[in-house]
Design a protein around this nucleic acid. Structure first.
Lengths: 228, 228
DNA sequence: AAATATGTGTGCGATACCGTACAGACAGGT
DNA sequence: ACCTGTCTGTACGGTATCGCACACATATTT
């Protein structure tokens, strides 16, 4: 990668006043995030905080028996590694790259120093954490009360919002992991959407054809999370 | 109430260094929390932060159609109103008193001032928030993957841990609201536990007879949340 | 070209939970 | 003692999701 993306494409970094950004930017390290890459393991130590630019990362919570559920999604609107400044050294969830792309990262030491300046960075991080909590809560109720069909719509839209095009590279198997349902359930729900002419897909490539229709199928949870 | 409880029975206040506690304590206002009382409405403004002593409060997330799910429980180990210092003026969830009791509260203005001292209070609050996030995440996966039976066990144990005795005052209807299931589902699950000699109950009074057995029925989620 | 791996479609029966309906048990007030 | 409201027990069909099994299609490797 010869051309480096502007760190300010991450909304959080963009919201930082010039002075703070200048102080931080020498320490920002560009990283490419590969599909399926695990940034944090659940219970593991955190060495960096990540600022996605074109990538999307899922926060998964994994049970002992291996079944899992997505509790939040982070794209260029947010950051990964909030536990770092919240006081824990470890994170309870696993962070998996859901859509390949680039981003920046910041060493934990540097981040903590910046946080302890009690400046704009701290308030930004806290406000984002608040938004993340909201997203988690909404996801939790959605899990409980809405059908797989609806959840798939929500998931597609949330992913789409964080990407430029109408394409996403993602197998039904992986989506099933995120939603915490069977792969067959996703196949069926996706089949309905395809039949309705809303999406098309094949072997790990999904294309959204009719976004307005997709939005008419989704549950209220999408709007709430989007507002963030 | 002539006799006032010691504010330090709240773990968070207890963890505060003497100096900070002295500064805060004149502003702590004792409150009684009645069963079913709503401390915060979802989307509403927050005037105070609450420190439960003998009460237990549930954080509920309510959908448009009225169905709800509990996303976290707070007793004397924690606080209510984290949105206050996280930067939002409103909270996304509804806070309902689940077990009658007393507590203290602190005006939002005073709290924010204290938070901005960037002292021990801030770090305590942040660490607790981290624990709360963990609890929310665990609850979310539990919702998705575990049976009503297991969730009821978890719920009973979590409530019990925050009380002194083996009794709780709580109808099956309310438990159902918390777990986001039908009342009949709770009746059935509770019936099984009673039949197994683990609990007894009648008209809003539940008594746990055999806690070890209850713990053998619960899912892993309980242990994780308890560790906090 | 053949062999293998990966992703998707489909078709069961099993089951957990839902929605609804109603009956009985108990508490409190008049 | 009665009425009324609240809490609990039970039943029944309906449905979404599960768990499993297997066929098929399309990439990827050999």
């Amino acid at each position: 990668m010869n051309e480096l993306a502007d760190p300010k494409l991450n909304h959080l970094l963009a919201a930082l006043p010039a002075e703070e950004f200048a102080r931080l930017s020498p320490h920002l390290e560009p990283v490419t995030m590969k599909l399926g890459q695990v940034l944090y393991e659940s219970g593991g130590a955190l060495s960096h905080m990540y600022f996605p630019i074109t990538s999307i990362v899922s926060l998964l919570y994994v049970l002992e028996n291996g079944s899992s559920a997505e509790i939040a999604v982070v794209g260029n609107e947010g950051i990964l590694g909030i536990s770092l400044f919240m006081g824990g050294e470890t994170t309870p969830s696993r962070a998996v790259v859901q859509s390949e792309g680039i981003g920046y990262r910041l060493g934990s030491r540097r981040l903590k120093d910046e946080f302890k300046e009690f400046g704009p960075m701290m308030f930004l991080l806290l406000r984002y954490t608040q938004a993340l909590i909201t997203q988690m809560a909404q996801t939790a109720v959605c899990n409980r009360h809405h059908s797989v069909d609806q959840q798939l719509c929500r998931w597609l839209l949330l992913s789409l919002d964080r990407l430029s095009g109408d394409d996403l590279k993602m197998t039904q198997e992986l989506i099933a992991n995120m939603l915490g349902v069977r792969r067959e359930g996703v196949t069926e729900a996706a089949g309905k959407l395809r039949h309705a002419g809303i999406i098309s897909y094949s072997r790990g490539h999904i294309r959204v054809l009719d976004r307005p229709k997709l939005e008419r199928n989704v549950c209220e949870c999408y709007a709430v999370v989007k507002k963030e």
